[in-house]
């Protein structure tokens, strides 16, 4: 998986948000505050617990009001520090197009764009993404006009059940922007962070190539 969790996280930091260690460090000081934020976050918390205490602003275990810029709209919501970006989108903002497939950063179903970079939204906390520009599947089309990747997925039948499709499309849109759709082999590698259990991979490759303007093969 070339676009692994590590590189996605560093992308998040580059975008100017607080690091996961900072946020989780606070959470760890508050005992249980990170429980429920996903397995990987818990593992991170365990590591953070051995790090020196962070003396910055203190986040309480109770909900805090944050604003997120989602699909071009400013959204104010109340989340606990342990709430993942994925759960905030789905459970608080009603944006259920982004899916939970594993909650462990292993399947890519929850992929969204944070400041243009693809991120597993189950592995990042909502409070870490304050004021970031977040794009979900609901924000990809321009009104009734589908994004070229959405259109290509339809035309190439690049899905069956559709559950992983939001994440596949968000990854595809980003990797085309990144210039990683130059050949079928490159697309296969760069799309390997998104599992499709229906096995639509060959059609996904065709769709990404078509949307990238590189022909179906």
């Amino acid at each position: 998986m070339p676009d692994d969790v590590g590189s996605r996280e560093s992308a998040g930091r580059a975008a100017g948000g607080p690091s996961r260690r900072q946020v989780l460090g606070r959470g760890a000081l508050l005992g249980a505050a990170t429980v429920g934020a996903g397995v990987a976050a818990q593992a991170e918390a365990a590591r953070a617990a051995t790090a020196p205490p962070v003396r910055e602003e203190t986040l309480a275990a109770e909900p805090v009001e944050i604003s997120l810029r989602v699909n071009g709209r400013e959204r104010t919501l109340s989340v606990e520090p342990r709430t993942t970006l994925l759960d905030a989108l789905r459970e608080r903002l009603g944006l259920t197009g982004t899916k939970k497939g594993c909650d462990q950063g292993a399947c890519g179903a929850c992929t969204v764009l944070v400041d243009g970079r693809r991120v597993n939204s189950c592995l990042t906390l909502a409070v870490m993404r304050r004021d970031a520009e977040i794009t979900t599947i609901e924000g990809l089309a321009k009104g009734d006009e589908l994004h070229p990747v959405q259109r290509a997925f339809l035309e190439c039948d690049a899905f069956q059940c559709g559950y992983c499709t939001s994440g596949q499309i968000m990854s595809a849109a980003a990797l085309i922007e990144e210039g990683h759709a130059g050949s079928p082999g490159e697309v296969r590698e760069w799309m390997s962070g998104n599992i499709c259990r229906c096995g639509a991979y060959p059609n996904i490759v065709a769709a990404v190539r078509q949307a990238a303007g590189g022909g179906a093969r």
Partner: peptide
């Protein structure tokens, strides 16, 4: 149902 699936709807 394809359009519903590619738009997250």
């Amino acid at each position: 149902e394809g359009r519903l699936k590619v738009t997250g709807a």
